[in-house]
Design a protein around this nucleic acid. Structure first.
Lengths: 206, 206
DNA sequence: GTCTATATCGTGATAGAC
DNA sequence: GTCTATCACGATATAGAC
């Protein structure tokens, strides 16, 4: 019987959270297929039967884990852009934070590795990620471009995707795919060049 | 004993290629861990013992497969940019081809899924991919920017990465991660906006 | 070199005591 | 609700006939 994380006693919440923490260790380290329910139980400090009393099967545990992690990540996309700040500074701050966030978080790297690796067999999980992270991020920036008179781009959403895509792909190439060892480049050069494109090239009304 | 694909008789070459073809089917469909050597053998039309007489173990087969596929892909990065063409058209053609290449090739999607998914446990394979595909691609475009007087970017390599990164990330988001179902966008809008940034915003010398 | 048959082990999942 | 003990199965890898 599947037991959704219904909270009756705080005790039970703790167990479910414990299991999810163990599952995170195991799934992020080995990927879905190579992860072992024995090791999940060991990492969580419970028996395997307990794991199966909280989650129907391996797939359900994995699904819940990814959705939980996506929800937590989602919290941190709030209020990225400071409307009161000067646009050039606001954009620079946004890009710097996004770059830092994408580049220097090994746990997040492993999360994306699993998500991308399983996106063919677990399309709904990939969609959850896109829905809760990529989409709000792009829309926030696009809306900022649209509402701020300092910008006058023909296609604000495409522009937002180019900005985010540059940063995300840089992080994937350099950090996740180990490009740093083969084609090193400082993060600041991407940010500086994006700023150059947005502000120093932008068509000043002649 | 490991048997490298030494070609003595054409017969043996055929078998090795057959096995690699079967391995491709299985590994790309299920990922490394979930792939079964039984199914590899079945897909290749040989017995499992034959597979093990050509490749030391599962890991060696996987490694050889990825290196082979990367080498084949590598061939197609030749001569992307037409030096004789007008820059605006050359860039547009490049972006269109790259976008098509990244978006409409399910086999390539699965290849990248496996590579990204295993990039933590097989870092050398990820590096091979970067070395043979990402690096030459970025360098070709950067060199084009540097050598062509129509462009005068402060950081041509960062600019090249932004262009490629935008396209690659768009493909990953829309196709691999199924973003098309959640935040649809035509490929042309990315290309048009990149063209706008490169040509219509570029600092005219006043 | 290639096959059939098998050894050995770890896996996901469960039964039953408490 | 949680544990220990166990089942049934499929995995990688190999032995040995031909």
């Amino acid at each position: 019987m599947t037991i959704a994380p219904v909270l009756s006693k705080p005790r039970e919440m703790k167990k479910t959270a414990q299991i999810l923490r163990g599952a995170m260790e195991e799934f992020l380290a080995r990927g879905y297929a190579a992860a072992s329910m024995d090791r999940v139980a060991a990492a969580a400090g419970v028996s395997k039967a307990t794991v199966y009393s909280h989650f129907a099967d391996k797939e359900a545990l994995f699904t819940t884990l990814v959705e939980t992690m996506a929800r937590e990540r989602f919290q941190s996309v709030r209020a990225m852009l400071d409307e009161t700040m000067e646009p050039r500074l606001a954009i620079r701050q946004l890009l710097t934070i996004a770059m830092e966030d994408c580049c220097n978080n090994e746990e997040f790297h492993n999360f994306k590795r699993v998500l991308v690796g399983e996106s063919g067999r677990f399309p709904e999980l990939a969609k959850t990620f896109v829905e809760h992270l990529s989409k709000p991020g792009v829309e926030a920036i696009a809306e900022y471009f649209r509402s701020n008179p300092a910008f006058n781009f023909p296609d604000p959403e495409a522009m937002a995707r180019i900005m985010i895509g540059s940063v995300v792909n840089f992080a994937m190439l350099q950090k996740m795919m180990h490009g740093d060892a083969i084609m090193p480049m400082e993060q600041a050069r991407i940010i500086d060049t994006l700023e150059y494109l947005l502000f120093d090239c932008a068509p000043k009304s002649p």
